[in-house]
């Protein structure tokens, strides 16, 4: 809890975040086909992870904090995964006339 990061670390993280913003805007102009959204999301997730680990200090925090921080995202996956599991499997069943 009492960990104090150096200013240098914060400036490095800041620089990386700005750079990744430029990258995501630039890469949006290139057509990657099916990978367009996954790449944009991967960059966003990377930026979010940097903020969580260093600006929010989870890297230096107790295991409990790490579990709590992770649980929110785990439950999002449950919500998204199961709901989309319904929508994506609706067409699997055949019916007369199709």
């Amino acid at each position: 809890m009492s960990h104090i990061s150096s200013k240098g670390l914060y400036y490095t993280i800041f620089g990386t975040l700005i750079a990744m913003t430029v990258v995501t805007v630039a890469i949006a102009r290139i057509d990657l086909g099916a990978l367009n959204t996954p790449v944009a999301l991967a960059i966003a997730a990377f930026k979010a992870t940097l903020v969580i680990l260093f600006f929010m200090g989870v890297k230096y925090n107790t295991p409990l904090t790490k579990v709590v921080a992770a649980s929110g995202f785990l439950w999002l996956i449950i919500l998204f995964g199961i709901t989309m599991g319904d929508y994506l499997t609706r067409a699997w069943i055949g019916f007369p006339g199709r």
């Binding site: 995501t24 949006a28 290139i30 057509d31 367009n36 999301l41 966003a44 979010a48 903020v51």
Partner: peptide, 14 residues
């Protein structure tokens, strides 16, 4: 906002 920006603004800019 880091997630909202690409998901709302950057769709299909190519």
């Amino acid at each position: 906002w880091i997630f909202l920006f690409p998901l709302l603004y950057l769709i299909g800019k190519h």
